[in-house]
Nucleic acid binder design. Structure first.
Lengths: 123, 123
DNA sequence: CAGTATAGGGACAATATTTTCACTATTGTA
DNA sequence: TACAATAGTGAAAATATTGTCCCTATACTG
């Protein structure tokens, strides 16, 4: 395993949340699992920009922190499903807020760009 | 400047929020500025684990995204102050939620550790 | 004069994260 | 037989982020 050398800073709640949610795809994964995508292949198809490897790693981390629960069906070809735990569900408001804020910011941002192109400047 | 080679993924709002808030200290900085710490030296003293360099970089990024506003007082020795913009203030609920969730998770986590030490296991 | 405080940047080193690619193994399908 | 789908890992490379150290400049203090 990879051993970290820079000590983590857990002085404030924000750092903790960032430790658990900070990965590039973790909030997206929580969101997707909540929306019904449980199998790794589904998640991978829904996030084509994410490498399979990272998704796998981040799922493992989320599981290690008790955010999701892994169910291995003993069949072949393999079938695995991930579900949110209570801890994971308690993160949903945060994930939703991230999604909403980002969407609003994006549309605001696009509006600004349009206005600049048309030569209009807001006061 | 540093040029990124992996294209950003802005397909969902979450990625956008992460792009703006994802830095190691950005949410902490927003929180601190909101709580009245406006000068870089104050912020640095309040986050001794963060290197001066990174704080400076992340402040610059927050400014570039319009989350904070920089006020340079033309005096010597230099005096600079950062303030939240409207965009920055719109992030406060998110920052608060991160702080609260992390704090709760941490105390839950500590409780569990204690219980394990005492030999008690919750069902 | 020497040191401190102020805000910040450049150069570079150290560390962390992500990507790529090749592999494991089994079953079903063309 | 050859290949896809399934879930996942190892090794190594590529990229990103953060840390360390030294430098700029000015005014004040001792």
């Amino acid at each position: 395993m990879y051993e970290k050398k820079i000590p983590k800073d857990f002085s404030c709640g924000i750092s903790i949340t960032l430790e658990i949610m900070g990965g590039k795809w973790k909030p997206c994964l929580i969101d997707s699992i909540n929306k019904g995508m449980h199998r790794p292949s589904e998640l991978a198809k829904h996030h084509p920009n994410a490498s399979k490897r990272v998704l796998s790693l981040q799922l493992k981390e989320l599981e290690a922190y008790g955010v999701i629960r892994k169910v291995i069906h003993p069949v072949l070809p393999p079938k695995v499903e991930y579900f949110l735990t209570e801890v994971g569900e308690s993160l949903l408001p945060l994930v939703d807020m991230m999604e909403n804020w980002g969407s609003e910011f994006m549309s605001e941002f696009n509006n600004r760009q349009e206005n600049i192109h048309v030569g209009v400047t807001k006061m």
